[in-house]
């Protein structure tokens, strides 16, 4: 293999500069090989557990494979057709997921930015607060927190105890999804940290100059902080978008998709089809459509970025 690779590389370099160059290139390739060897545990795991399953799921998407039935085969685009024409729950899952994404992501980012601004001061104990506010996003995606959330919003839960009411938060189609959105907003830690880093990058002189010109805090926020922070917002938005469309654990444990499929998130429905109904082919097709949806949404955000993201180095 190395011979096949070296032959074309050698030809042009030999005609120009001669031997020394070739030797350097050879040792460079040798170094590469060593590098690949060093990361081979990762590479092997990547191929075994990520790359091959990705290919397998792509192929399965065009079959009716259901684990138990030995007589499965190709069904062409039937899975995709069924999704959009003959599966009312699929449409509900799309609605629930988009509603969640469009509510939870902006709210979480706004919340994260607000807290980041509060923590971007030199008060005492501020690093302690930072750690404290970051904690929910470490534990927030966990099963334990989801179970706790179920209890908090349960009929005998904390919220009803405080309100002195008997409201079925998790059973009412209007409120159930909001308990999940609140949980998502509460996990504002990682975008908050990134915002905090971004805020520290903004030169103090800008604020000093603005203050001398008589700008109040509000004006400083809109004219200095927000514009200079747009690359960070952009980054956070893309990351949150991707994870937002893949939300699973919370709905799986807290609501199970109920009531009336208002919290039947895409990944949850995919799981149900794959592991409850064992329709692996259909579920694989759903996974690839999810990929397409997230790619399109992300592409839209990227496209729009030239209108609102401001890179300091760019001349407008």
């Amino acid at each position: 293999m190395s011979e096949a690779l070296s032959a074309p590389a050698q030809a042009p370099s030999a005609s120009h500069k001669g031997r020394p160059v070739r030797r350097r290139k050879a040792s460079f390739r040798h170094d590469n090989l060593m590098g690949y060897l060093f990361i081979s545990p990762w590479l092997i795991a990547f191929f075994a557990f990520t790359f091959i399953p990705i290919i397998a799921s792509f192929l399965l998407a065009f079959t009716n494979y259901d684990v138990l039935n030995p007589s499965w085969g190709w069904v062409g685009l039937q899975n995709f057709e069924r999704m959009f024409t003959r599966d009312p729950r699929y449409i509900k899952a799309l609605q629930a997921t988009f509603f969640y994404a469009f509510m939870a992501i902006p709210l979480r980012l706004i919340f994260a930015l607000a807290i980041a601004m509060l923590l971007n001061t030199n008060r005492r104990m501020v690093s302690g607060y930072r750690a404290a506010y970051y904690a929910p996003s470490i534990v927030g995606g966990s099963v334990a927190i989801a179970v706790m959330w179920r209890e908090i919003f349960g009929r005998d839960g904390l919220v009803n105890a405080i309100l002195g009411a008997d409201i079925a938060w998790l059973g009412n189609p209007n409120t159930a999804i909001w308990t999940l959105i609140i949980l998502a907003v509460w996990q504002f830690g990682s975008p908050m940290l990134i915002f905090l880093a971004g805020l520290k990058q903004i030169p103090r002189e800008f604020y000093e100059a603005a203050a001398i010109d008589g700008a109040n805090g509000w004006q400083q926020f809109w004219r200095i902080t927000l514009p200079l922070l747009t690359p960070i917002i952009f980054f956070n938005l893309v990351m949150q978008l991707i994870s937002g469309f893949m939300v699973f654990t919370q709905a799986f444990i807290i609501t199970g998709g109920a009531p009336l499929d208002t919290t039947l998130f895409y990944a949850l429905y995919l799981y149900q089809r794959a592991f409850v109904s064992l329709q692996m082919g259909y579920a694989s097709a759903m996974a690839w459509v999810l990929l397409a949806i997230i790619a399109i949404m992300t592409a839209l955000v990227f496209r729009s970025s030239s209108y609102w993201v401001f890179y300091g180095s760019q001349e407008e």
Binding site: T50, I54, I242, A274, A287, L291, T298
Partner: peptide
């Protein structure tokens, strides 16, 4: 995005 999404979905596929 493909890497992120599909690596998360991979366990469900296989």
């Amino acid at each position: 995005v493909a890497a992120l999404v599909l690596s998360a979905c991979a366990p469900s596929a296989a």
